[in-house]
Design a protein around this nucleic acid. Structure first.
Ligand SMILES: [Mn+2]
Ligand SMILES: [Mn+2]
Ligand SMILES: [Zn+2]
Ligand SMILES: [Zn+2]
Lengths: 146, 146
DNA sequence: ATGCTATGTAGGAATCATTCCTAGGTAGGG
DNA sequence: CCCTACCTAGGAATGATTCCTACATAGCAT
């Protein structure tokens, strides 16, 4: 998805976030990929155009964008944090071999609920589904998938 | 759930794990609670009966038990690791206020699948569902749940 | 029972993603 | 165009987890 400066400005204004060169670069890099990169992946990408960029700015900016709802964090187990520029409701497929994360858009999964008997008085605001398995490429490598 | 020594020995033998005093203490503490404690919670609990217990032994043992399938790790976002002595298939309710984790046993949730169109060639081995919300206690504290 | 050896344990050091601190720098409302 | 609230860069600090290593022990074989 190509993001021009006008669209960028619109989104940042809508979420009341100040737009800077660094933020534009970080957000654009994230919004234009579906690979769920780590903070360091983004730092490496963005540094090519902005050699002075600090790793700290990447972390700080991701925090700001996340609180504003422009970005979300997608953590898999205890691995390093992964980020997602797609903030629509969706779920993920995780490859146990290469650790890639693939989006799953499925209206059925968005409708899950806990039966009242199990809800224990919780007020539920959302949910998250992760499917674990092996991608096509990783299945070829190892015939006996555990 | 009360766990006697004979039952403990049976479980460890079945999973081919050597039984020691430390492992018995750690596993018992975890299997007898439904609170999904952290490694440090377990260390603090077990240290009361075993003052010489090392924190490292707790981590190492949890790793061994996990690989053997006697224990599982339940991570919420990027918080410290939480452990679960319940290795049957089940899912979780997570309180955004007090961070407690509550078990959800629901046969319907165990049957989820990804439509072929979305599976992208993955061979899926399992899935995990997390519901996020506020527990009864945390709802009372703050009238405007976000 | 006793001894052997693979395996486990304790304690301390090391790791490393993330957060904290602080002294400049800059976006953008007025 | 000018303030100033907010941002950035760089370095230090943090803290859960892992690594290292010398000593201890469970469980098998004698
Ligand atoms: Mn995604
Ligand atoms: Mn559980
Ligand atoms: Zn893969
Ligand atoms: Zn709560």
């Amino acid at each position: 998805m190509r993001l021009n400066h006008a669209e960028l400005l619109t989104r940042f204004r809508r979420h009341a976030v100040r737009l800077t060169r660094q933020r534009a670069a970080i957000y654009t890099a994230l919004a234009e990929t579906t690979s769920h990169p780590t903070a360091d992946d983004l730092y490496q990408t963005v540094k090519r155009q902005h050699p002075m960029m600090s790793r700290n700015t990447v972390y700080y900016t991701l925090g700001v964008l996340q609180q504003a709802g422009l970005v979300q964090e997608v953590n898999v187990g205890h691995e390093v944090a992964r980020f997602d520029g797609n903030v629509t409701v969706h779920h993920h497929l995780i490859c146990l071999g290469c650790r890639q994360i693939v989006d799953v858009m499925d209206e059925g999964l968005n409708q899950l609920a806990v039966s009242n008997g199990q809800a224990r008085g919780f007020r539920i605001l959302g949910h998250r589904v992760e499917f674990h398995g092996y991608c096509a490429g990783c299945q070829r490598g190892k015939l006996d998938v555990p």
